[in-house]
Amino acid sequence: MILYVDAGTTWSKVCEFSPCESLFEDKFKKYLKLTKDNRKYYIIPSNLLKNAGFNFTAATGHMSKINLANENNYMNEVIALSKGFLVNNDKKSGLILDLGSRDAKWVKFNNGKFKDLDWNNSCASATGATIEMLLKFYEVSVDELEVTDEKYNITCGIFGLEKIMDDIANGEKANLAISKFLHGIAYNAWSFAKKPKEIYLSGGFCDNKCFTDSLSKYVKVNKLGRFVLLDGLMQEYNNLQLH
């Protein structure tokens, strides 16, 4: 069984190479998102994966070293993102922004040549885990979020959370307050990436329409989905021509 993993803090993205059913598929069938040729793509809660006892062929991400059969097959996340972007972008030019559970990182290329990068890994304000917690706490579904013109200033995530709580206490609907928070995250992400005119977006926020619509107020957004780092990882370790 060949398994590649982008093991994030809360969610792990896994690609399994297997022509038939496997022990892995048996265990994680409910998390299977996509099947393509002999490849099966899963999105699995990281805490389940960590304790499942599977060894991975190669890995990237915050939690990956735990389950690696050979720790030399670990790839730095920014490098995986870069390689995944180049696999997914014929022009080999542009800026790829990955928004994860707890961090944001971007890399810029021009004709396949590295130009610039940054990685914000300290502040939780610009991350998906905060949004997931807010949605759970206020019992709001992602579909209930709607784009707002107003945005919270969330340079500091703690102040942003305080603003949500204040506004909801004063009668604001929770879905609108969280939407304003999301708008603030979108604006911060764009500013963090040095305000480009076009962004290729990677990560779980690709599935959040309110976020991508908010970001589109500032920049042209191309969604590449949640498997970009996996593509980079597989390209490196299997020399795959994925697209």
Binding site: N76, E77, V78, I79, S82, D103, V107, F114, L117, D118, W119, N121
Partner: peptide, 12 residues
């Protein structure tokens, strides 16, 4: 994370 950021800058 800072180590990886510098490592990426050097490798890329």
């Amino acid at each position: 994370s800072v180590k990886y950021k510098i490592e990426a800058f050097i490798k890329l």
